[in-house]
Every structure is written in C-alpha cells, then in structure tokens.
Nucleic acid binder design. Structure first.
Lengths: 228, 228
DNA sequence: AGCTTGTGTGACAAACATGTGACAGAATCA
DNA sequence: TGATTCTGTCACATGTTTGTCACACAAGCT
C-alpha cells in the first residue's frame, strides 16, 4: 500500500524526471500538466501528496493550492511546491499558499525524496483513513464503506463525508452553516436548506438498519449525531 | 455587540447597496470612498471585517489590502474583495491580494451575507461553550441538551436560552426588562408579560423532574434562579 | 372586606422551522 | 457517446414555537 503522489508540472522533461524519482522510491506516480487534469486525477485517485509546480499554464500553482485547501474533500492532502530559484521562501510558505513544504529547482533527487517522506510522515498522525465507529456504525474512509450490523450501507459522496464528519464530532450540535463549511468547504456557495435534504438522504440510507435516529434535529440550532 | 463592517467602495450606488444589506443583517456599517478615508475609519473604529473594492480611485484595492496586511495592527482584519465580472478569480485569490474571500459584482445579497458570516466565523474563534451545572441540573450548550437526574429535558430555543442565562446568573433577581434584553436581545420588542409565559413554560418542562422550584418569583421585581 | 396590583394559566393564530417528494442540470461512468 | 447517478433547489406538507390575550388567582393595602 504505497502512497500515491500526484505530480502537477507542465514541463514534460521535469515531469518525467519527477515521476522517475518518485517511482524509483517505491511510490505510485500520477501526472497532470495543468489545473484541470490535476483535478481530474485528484477526483479519480485521491493522491496522498501533491507535488505542485509554482508556475502553471492557466491557473498558477498557488491558486490550485488555495482551491485544494478550500474544498473539504481535498483540504487535508499535503502539498509540496516546486519553485524556481528566484522565488521567495516566505511567499511560498506564507499563508496564501497552502503548501506544506517547498523545494527549489533544480533539486537533487535525494533532497526531493527526503522532503516527500518528511511531509508524508508529518501527515500520518492525522490519520485521515482511520476507521471510525460510533453508535453501532462503522465507517472506513480508506475503503469508502459504511457498515451497520453486517449490513453495508450505500452512500453518495456527500452523504459519506457528512456522516464521517458527524461520527468524528458526535454529541455536538452543528448549524447548517457550520456543516456547509466543514463538509462542503468554504468556497462553495449553496443554500442552507441543502443541508436538510442531505440529512434526509442520509437518514433514508440509515433507516433500513434502524440507525436513522442517530442523527437528531435540534430545532432552531441544527443537527447532532448522538449515540445516547 | 454586533460586528463592524467597513465598506470601501467609490461608487456611491454600490456603497449604498452594500451598507443597506449589511445593516439589514444586523451589522454596523462604516463607509469609505478611497484608501485615505478607509485608513481614517480603520484608525478610528477598528472594523471586524473589510469589504474592499478591487478597483479604487488612487490606490487600488489590492494595494490597500497589501498595506493592511503589512501593518501589525490591521493584518488580522479579514478582507472580502469585490470584483467586476471580468476580473480573474486567480488574481483575486493569488499572492498579490491578501483577501480572505471574494465576491463578484453583481452579487446577490444572500451570497454576500453568507460570505461575510463565513469569514467572520472563521476569524472569531467562538468561546468554548462549557457545560453549566447548578441545582441538580446540567446544561450543555455544545450538545444543546439539558439533563436532570439522567432524565433529558426538552426545551424550545427560547426556554433553552432563558435557562442558560439563569443558570449562569443564579441567586440574583432579574426584572422582565432585563431578561428581555439578555435573552431576547435589545433589538426585539415584545411585551413584558411574554417573559411570564416563558417562565411558565420553562417551569412546566422542569416539573416532571421536580426542578421547577428552582425558578422563583420575586413579586414586584422579577424572577430568580436559586438553588438554596 | 373591598380594592388594587401583580402573577399564573390555558387557548390561539401567526410566524417559523423542518420534512418530503419531485425535478432539472451536472458530474460520472461504461 | 448515452445511461446513470448525484446534487442543489424548489414548492408544498407538516409540525413547533412564539407572542398575545383574557381571565383566574394571589398578595398587599386601607
């Protein structure tokens, strides 16, 4: 189960070089030349880390990084920025870019791999893939699967993230707005009532297992996942 | 103690529109037409958030944003950029601007307010809502629950706020007017007698647990929550 | 006791919040 | 590409909450 690393770089030569090094080190290399193909790759295979060129054709790397950070689905993926020599370290690691680390071109393969490993290691404690269990439900982010008493529960992506958030934040009320921020991401603008509909869909999916009562309505405040 | 929002916009019509929406939503609106008057306002009243037009007469909005970011006193004030449709999303969120979010003109009031609230929420770490316990009752703002001897007590939003206020201000008499200010808020106008009715409803909810005597009537003065 | 003032109580309509089914467009898949 | 799922939004149904009232009741005063 080696980590997937997405390389976002428009220069074919450098992309090739990176891919070679990464593969050589036992990781799985994914490639993209611009922001669009990067998103496609991300949707398809959820990389564990992104090597991102500071300068990209259309959207620059910084913008892509920001977008990644503001989307609930991708905000936890670590990013290493690739910069030309001139670039200021401060800018790269500053607030604006959501980068975890950066490396200057040209780089030595050894340094590159060292940084990749360091970032991955630093990121492991977050354990985004840990199985969560609460109230008779079991949710596994890694396999994207939910089980209740041996019965598998089918959920759409949004319902899945919603349930995941609830299970990791049980016994606490969240307003529709908070849920939108946490589950949808801050840059997405949707109606608050959309939350209601997704709550309903989630309940409907949990109902066959008689688990729908885990998600409670708190009138005037929001919703709560509770095992009590 | 509602948030102050500084509107920096040279177009009078748009400034007016923004101020209207902001005020309507219960915020306090400050206005400025250019960078100079903006700084003046900022020095005078330290807004909690700045709505900043991308294009301004002398200094452009981006420059002002940069200046704000480089001043220790103002670098933490969140900024929402107002841009014309043509403007590149990339530029706005890029390194240059220190913006926290942006919105494109023309905008819907709803979206504007949603973004303002989202940014404010992100920037004001809400104080930890601690569990309050008094007289055998336990009230948890976070989970929005009230318990009396293992029995859950169901309360409507207003009764909940009322009880919360009482529990955090026990042993002291509050007049109907004071309670209206504290629990209902100063903006709302309701009859004083309404307090009586809510007190009654609260007592009714506490009665099954024999906790209704915690709320005492002080004839001619008001009500008191007392554990003695 | 009578009178005055303050508080308890049940009822009620309007306002409000949430549940629910349907639908069209977007994203995804084969 | 066309088929299929997923999403966000709406309109309507349902259910709660809220503020007010009218009247009953209680307490204090002369």
């Amino acid at each position: 189960m080696n980590a997937k690393i997405l390389i976002v770089e428009d220069e074919p030569a450098i992309q090739e070089l990176l891919a070679f090094n990464v593969t050589q080190a036992g990781f799985q290399a994914l490639r993209a030349e611009d922001a669009d193909s990067a998103w496609q790759q991300i949707r398809n295979s959820m990389p564990d880390l992104i090597l991102l060129d500071w300068m990209l054709p259309n959207t620059s790397g910084v913008i892509l990084a920001k977008q990644l950070r503001s989307d609930a689905r991708t905000k936890d993926i670590p990013i290493i920025m690739l910069t030309a020599r001139g670039e200021e370290r401060d800018k790269v690691l500053g607030l604006e870019s959501g980068a975890d680390d950066y490396i200057t071109k040209p780089f030595s393969p050894r340094e590159l791999m060292a940084r990749i490993r360091a970032v991955l290691r630093r990121h492991v404690p977050q354990m985004p893939d840990e199985v969560v269990a609460a109230g008779g439900l079991e949710l596994s982010p890694a396999s994207h699967r939910v089980t209740a008493r041996d019965a598998t529960i089918e959920l759409g992506p949004t319902e899945f993230r919603l349930l995941h958030f609830f299970m990791t934040h049980a016994e606490r009320v969240y307003s529709r707005t908070q849920l939108l921020d946490q589950v949808w991401g801050t840059q997405v603008f949707v109606e608050e009532r959309t939350v209601d509909v997704h709550i309903r869909r989630l309940r409907a999916a949990l109902e066959p297992a008689e688990m729908d009562s885990l998600i409670q309505t708190v009138r005037g405040s929001g919703y709560r996942f509770s095992v009590k």
